[in-house]
Design a protein around this nucleic acid. Structure first.
Lengths: 348, 348
DNA sequence: CGGCCATAGATTAACGTTAATCTCAAGAGA
DNA sequence: TCTCTTGAGATTAACGTTAATCTATGGCCG
């Protein structure tokens, strides 16, 4: 590890001169070409690289943004959720020359706590918080009002800007799509009890789903267990069909895993997808690899992460613009049409 | 931002005293309780937090490890791959008090370049490199010999420790499982032309797969496009069956997406899975949500990431142990048995 | 009563960088 | 010849922390 001092000594100039020539490039016109060349040559010889922490300390800025990930979903759903979100954050930051630092919870301290600590210490310039997690540990958020933090979905009580998703618009898009295909009797399939329904979706789903004809509910199991979801929904729908209920030509599902279960149940009961029944998923985490590839409402997590990072960067550039009521940026989900929906049989 | 100076001024002690009492806690027995209390009270009043970069500069250590992610796979496969890998790295590091910083490529500079730069600058203590990517930009790796870097799969020519996966053992496990179920005629289904086959698996597959009776090849499309994989393998197997080839009771697939395509083709041709034909996937990225849930060879990426981080931490603690020939840590894949394999029909 | 030691801290120097100010010599202008 | 300017760089001080060394006071012992 060589420092400017080594360079300066070798080039027989002052440390400041070396700094100006090698790093800041200010007042370059004030040095003779010979001097500049000497400094560069010396830097090469001792293979000088500027010290990260010294520069950051001096500048009072880190160019790093933190993202806390509590251990909540350790499965394919969590993979998809966080991976897409983090990709969005990462690329937006990278474009602006920032790095992204991801924090995990340990036995002693939550990821959010660690992240907030480094933020206060100046090791991070800001923070993007997947909001699903932000409600864990409410006390962690005391005295954080003025910190540069952006939340992602759903809107939390903390007074930070937030990027949210309009679930209702997503469901509306699904219903509109089905209506255009001639479907009139639509079944809603998803958990309506259990922790997840409480947490995520209660009002959004309820309001968004008023257009459905009927709804089939099943008890939520472990939060976000995809295999479990698929099994639950398969059982529920199979029982429903076995009971002779068949007054629907399309199913809208809570997520892609539930949709996968629905497809399985329909098949087992001799209904073809999409020929006999159309199925729409939600999230677009696994929809592409299912059979048939699912029409689904995309969560657009990449875009949400990207947008959150953009907002954070704006906050860092101009904090005064973000005083007052915190910004809520609502994104529209996107309907991705694949092969699990088609024109209703009775409207062909 | 208050500093030790502010605290010291307010508590009427020297800066060093404040440092010892608040941060290092060395020589604490040498201060009167009254003094200690005064310093703590002052720290509270000015809400002191130690400065991150100043501490790191002083200590000459960052407690941050970098992971470069080049933009290679921007799809569900990439999500699963990197998410699981990063989770493993993250948790291992978090346990040891390290943070994980993820780098992305920008238009100008590759993620690896950025990461290496910060490593040399002392902003990072080490680096875990998903090896799939390390071969991009060979020149980037010149003059990096002594840096604390650990690679993950596959073994690259760079002289760093590496965590690798024994693909052959994975295939062997799949074949053994099928043999135990009475299968004798096994079809290998996967790309055998195109970039991916070249890159990943050529020798591993070829050697590992000698036990298969026959193999069906299709042209590789875009690297790692899951939907594409499923479509390709579905077409290939459908054509194969349509041509009257049916001399197999089990299929071992290149990855889960290929297996999904295989299941689809088999179904379309009236074969039930697993009753008529057993199917084994590879990777365990999406195997759980497919119908039927796939028996698959798990890539164990979480474990690989975890192990890589552990090795890196050992390197940081005792660099001298890692001189000489770089360590290669080979992990055994794990066979995950789900519902797509069953006893061969002709052996029941 | 002088020397010695422990107590309770303060002072100094250093980590590596940089902004602001300062110096010194040469040349220009009056 | 004397002042003024300009060029080319050096010095100083600062960012916030900490390890190593130093000082001053008081008590104890011989």
């Amino acid at each position: 590890m060589s420092s400017l001092q080594d360079v300066a000594r070798l080039a027989e100039v002052s440390v400041t001169t070396a700094s100006k020539i090698l790093n800041t490039r200010r007042d370059l016109e004030r040095f003779t070409p010979a001097c500049i060349a000497r400094v560069h040559e010396a830097a090469r010889q001792v293979s000088y690289v500027p010290n990260f922490h010294a520069q950051r300390l001096r500048e009072g800025k880190s160019y790093v943004v933190g993202v806390p990930l509590e251990t909540v979903y350790d499965d394919a759903l969590g993979d998809a959720y966080f991976s897409k979100l983090l990709n969005g954050v990462r690329f937006a930051l990278a474009q602006a020359g920032y790095a992204m630092c991801v924090f995990s919870s340990t036995e002693e301290r939550s990821a959010t706590t660690q992240c907030l600590q480094q933020l206060r210490q100046g090791g991070l310039d800001g923070m993007v918080v997947p909001g699903v997690l932000s409600r864990l540990d409410g006390r962690v958020w005391s005295d954080t009002g003025a910190l540069p933090v952006v939340m992602v979905e759903p809107k939390a009580p903390m007074p930070f800007p937030c990027v949210d998703l309009d679930f209702r618009a997503g469901i509306r898009a699904a219903l509109t799509h089905l209506a255009e295909l001639g479907h009139r009797r639509i079944l809603w399939l998803g958990p309506t009890k259990g922790p997840r329904y409480q947490e995520f979706a209660s009002t959004a789903w309820q309001h968004g789903f008023q257009g459905a004809s009927c709804s089939l509910e099943f008890e939520d199991g472990k939060p976000a267990d995809q295999e479990g979801d698929a099994r639950q929904s398969c059982h529920a729908l199979r029982a429903y069909l076995a009971a002779g209920e068949a007054d629907f030509s399309a199913v809208v599902c809570f997520n892609d895993a539930v949709a996968a279960g629905a497809v399985r149940a329909l098949r087992e009961c001799g209904r073809r997808v999409p020929d006999d029944v159309s199925v729409v998923g939600f999230d677009d985490y696994s929809a592409g690899v299912l059979d048939p590839p699912l029409t689904t409402v995309s969560h657009r997590l990449y875009d949400m992460g990207h947008r959150a990072a953009e907002i954070l960067l704006e906050m860092l550039a101009a904090p005064e613009k973000f005083e007052g009521e915190p910004l809520v940026d609502v994104m529209e989900p996107a309907l991705v049409i694949r092969d699990s929906t088609s024109r209703a049989a009775d409207s062909r």
